[in-house]
């Protein structure tokens, strides 16, 4: 009886908290859009900062014009190409760094340094090397993502529990079994985190490189709109891109939670 009562009380409290949170989120969005509309119509002008409605119209125009999907696809394909290159180069580097002190020292400065270089520098370098074209953004994405992937793989390898490896040996398991059941599962969460983190920056650098020099893609469209002094279109392309990327981000987060569900249990213990 008493237990049922407290349980009910707890669930009511939880429901109350959830309601408060939800109302906060709705209010937050409302306030944001309201403030935006207010700023654009009262503080600035519709010309210098177009309001939400105007941007919505611009989005509508872009969507109905039809070719927007091509620009998104090309931008995303460049991002993933660069990303694939980063994984191909970053994984072996990370593997070496995690395994041997020499390679760790060898790559450390370059990898950490490469990760703190401003994106504009990568965009510039890509332009100088490849000029305007498909490969520039790919290179920029590869350059900026590689360090994160390498460092995460290295960290994963260093964190492999040697006691588990000893256990495996004591029970006479083969190297291949240890690789499959111990090494790979320990590295995977780190590799995944690396992918997720670097994805968050990869697309920005990709678009930036397109802004600097490209003849297609979302970045090119943003640049094109800017040169035509059409702020609504600048904002429309940006917001659409952000929405798409947040969606991909969320999907990756869900996948990550599912893949590594054993981890949450470990933490809860």
């Amino acid at each position: 009886m008493a237990e049922a009562a407290t349980l009910e009380g707890t669930s009511r409290r939880l429901a109350g908290a959830r309601l408060r949170r939800a109302s906060g989120v709705v209010l937050g969005w409302g306030a944001f859009v309201g403030l935006w509309a207010f700023t654009s119509s009262v503080i600035l002008t519709e010309f210098t900062l177009p309001g939400p409605l105007k941007v919505w119209d611009a989005i509508w125009v872009i969507v109905t014009a039809g070719s927007w999907a091509d620009d998104f696809l090309i931008s995303i394909s460049k991002t993933f190409m660069g990303f694939a290159i980063a994984v191909l180069i970053g994984t072996p580097i990370g593997y070496l760094m995690g395994r041997a002190g020499y390679w760790k020292a060898f790559f450390h400065d370059g990898v950490v340094g490469a990760g703190s270089v401003p994106g504009i520098v990568y965009a510039m370098m890509a332009l100088v090397i490849f000029g305007i074209g498909y490969l520039g953004p790919v290179l920029a994405v590869g350059l900026i993502s590689m360090p994160f992937i390498a460092l995460n793989v290295a960290e994963g390898l260093e964190g492999v529990d040697t006691d588990l490896l000893k256990m495996s040996k004591a029970f006479g398991r083969s190297e291949r079994q240890s690789l499959r059941h111990i090494l790979i599962p320990s590295i995977l969460p780190f590799a995944f985190a690396g992918v997720r983190l670097s994805f968050a920056i990869a697309w920005k650098v990709e678009a930036l490189t397109e802004v600097f020099g490209s003849s297609n893609g979302v970045g090119f469209q943003i640049r094109f709109a800017f040169q035509g002094f059409s702020i609504p279109r600048v904002l429309a392309w940006t917001l659409m891109f952000i929405a798409l990327l947040l969606l991909i981000e969320r999907a990756l987060a869900v996948l990550e939670r599912w893949l590594f569900r054993w981890r949450t249990w470990e933490q809860e213990e």
Binding site: D163, L164, F171, W262
Partner: peptide, 16 residues
């Protein structure tokens, strides 16, 4: 001979 080993800590694979 075949060996079995019980360690001080459980040493289970947390992901299995």
């Amino acid at each position: 001979a075949r060996l079995g080993y019980v360690f001080q800590d459980p040493r289970l694979l947390p992901w299995r």
